[in-house]
Design a binder for these strands. Structure first.
Lengths: 204, 204
DNA sequence: CAAATTACCAACCGGTCGGTATGTTTGCAA
DNA sequence: TTGCAAACATACCGACCGGTTGGTAATTTG
């Protein structure tokens, strides 16, 4: 790929990431993206055969960049799987900074909009959310085993953390304040810490 | 208001409720709504001065109809506030039936899309979510007092339940399966039951 | 009952949408 | 140097968008 190609295609994907998070997928026009990326419409349709294909590519791009972000994050350092899980949630809470469109989730936003009109985008969004959740499963499974916790699957708890985060974004958007999201993540952290607390044998 | 008016305006709001939940706000055209409601575009702009005003009216309509639904629901019957709270969550889980667009939340869908392009709609959505959440606060507060639970506000827990539900809808849509939502509500019920379990004094 | 108001309609408007047709430029290989 | 494909740019299209128009029919009001 030539240097020019890297710039145009990548800049379009970065523009999609930013503009779609702010305006939504449907309300974002191809011209919007071209203008933001500083390319022409011809370049757009050279790299993506349709707006829908860009949506899929944007979801995949999101998967890759967020995977790199989380892989390099410090929450993997604790030795205990449970501590790593809590550190992950604290890390997610710390990410709730800056302007609203900067910390919300591209694929959560898109999935809601296109789930019945663009199945390909929806599937890419699901793969992104689910794929990220699955990175938590080994630690959840190990923590459950180490502390004798049962009654649910590791996968369901991993997905539940993502559900809380997605819901927290919606509350933050509608209420126009990040504090709604922070409060919900606090409840999630409390839930996980209670799930794995040593005194669970006390439950009736 | 004349019979004719009731029909056209209400049918437009009902169409908005159904079509927007399926396609999203931006992707829903005024012509779509008119065709679904069986009225002309002139009638649409007679009742609503803009598409945005319809969005606000649809959010308000949603608030009213869901308030009536929950007011008449059976989860208010238990004598204990905690039991009522659990019954509410079970009721929400029972509502997860039928096709996806039938049980998802109109205002959660809209808020995500329009939060920076149509503040009036966003505020109406927030009022709807928040207003419904606040109906849970008295029971949460009473349950906290009765069982000596503290460490968070009743309001934050009420909003957290809505965050989980909104996030559950996103997972259900992206994964195209209601089971994702049901699993998350199960985790929420487990969280609430642990919060108010009698053995909480065991916590370290 | 006449006047005013509301409810509604069909046709239409300027503008924007996603997408295409047809170039021109660039980088690289032979 | 030339050939050639990929990487862009320009100009444009038909369809559709939200919204407006001028008008008619029904209802309410004094």
């Amino acid at each position: 790929m030539s240097p020019r190609a890297i710039n145009a295609r990548t800049r379009l994907l970065e523009s999609a990431r930013d503009v779609i998070r702010a305006k939504g997928f449907s309300a974002t026009s191809v011209d919007d993206l071209c203008k933001t990326a500083g390319v022409t419409k011809g370049a757009f349709f050279h790299h993506f055969k349709s707006k829908e294909e860009l949506g899929v590519a944007a979801a995949d791009f999101w998967s890759e960049t967020t995977a790199a972000l989380f892989a390099g994050a410090p929450y993997h350092q604790p030795d205990d799987p449970y501590d790593r899980l809590i550190a992950y949630l604290e890390f997610r809470k710390d990410l709730l900074a800056g302007d609203l469109p900067d910390y919300t989730c591209l694929v959560g936003t898109m999935a809601q909009e296109v789930y019945d009109s663009a199945p390909a985008i929806r599937d890419a969004c699901h793969a992104s959310i689910s794929g990220h959740a699955m990175t938590l499963v080994p630690d959840i499974r190990a923590a459950m085993a180490a502390r004798g916790v049962s009654g649910f699957t590791p996968e369901s708890l991993a997905l539940h953390t993502q559900a809380v985060l997605q819901g927290a974004f919606i509350l933050a958007k509608s209420g126009n304040s990040v504090s709604f999201a922070q409060d919900s993540v606090d409840h999630l952290i409390r839930y996980v810490s209670m799930l794995f607390s040593q005194s669970r044998e006390e439950k009736k």
